[in-house]
Amino acid sequence: RQGFVPAAYVKKLDSGTGKELVLALYDYQEKSPREVTMKKGDILTLLNSTNKDWWKVEVN
């Protein structure tokens, strides 16, 4: 499932696989259909980080 999360809630990881991955630093509950819920410690695939406030991710 793809959607947006606050950029301040995730940290980029060095995956070494060519995929950009991020680590969820905090729990986040989606507040609109365009967002996704994540739990602290989740590893997500980063799809787009051009917006400084909201990053598009895919929940694996």
Rank of each mutant, 00 (worst) to 15 (best):
R34Q: 12
A24H: 00
E35L: 05
G3T: 02
E20A: 12
L13N: 02
T50A: 10
L21R: 11
E35I: 04
A8S: 14
F4S: 03
T45S: 08
W55R: 00
L44C: 08
I43C: 06
K12E: 06
S49L: 04
A7P: 06
G3I: 04
T17A: 14
V22T: 02
K31Y: 05
Q29P: 06
T45W: 12
V10D: 02
L47R: 03
S32I: 04
G41Q: 02
V10G: 00
V10K: 00
A24I: 03
Y28S: 01
V10R: 00
V57S: 00
K40F: 05
Q2R: 15
T17N: 14
W54K: 02
D42Y: 05
E20L: 12
N60F: 13
Q2G: 06
A8H: 12
P33D: 13
L44D: 00
L25C: 07
V22C: 13
D42E: 10
N60C: 14
V36G: 02
S32H: 12
D53Q: 12
P33V: 09
P6K: 04
G16K: 14
G41M: 03
R34C: 15
R1W: 06
N48A: 08
V10C: 15
A7I: 03
L21P: 02
Y9G: 07
V5Y: 00
A24Q: 00
T37D: 04
E30G: 14
D53R: 13
R1E: 04
E58I: 07
Y28P: 00
P33K: 11
K12S: 07
K31S: 09
D27S: 08
V5N: 01
P6W: 03
L13P: 01
A7R: 11
D27C: 05
F4C: 11
A24S: 05
K19F: 10
K19I: 13
V5G: 01
W54P: 00
T45I: 15
G16L: 13
L47K: 05
G16I: 14
D42V: 04
T17H: 14
R1Y: 06
L21V: 09
T50S: 14
D14A: 12
A24K: 01
D53G: 08
K19V: 15
S49Y: 08
M38A: 02
T37L: 03
E58Q: 10
Y9C: 13
V22A: 10
Q2A: 11
V5H: 00
E30C: 14
P33N: 11
D42K: 02
L47G: 01
D53H: 15
W55M: 03
P6E: 02
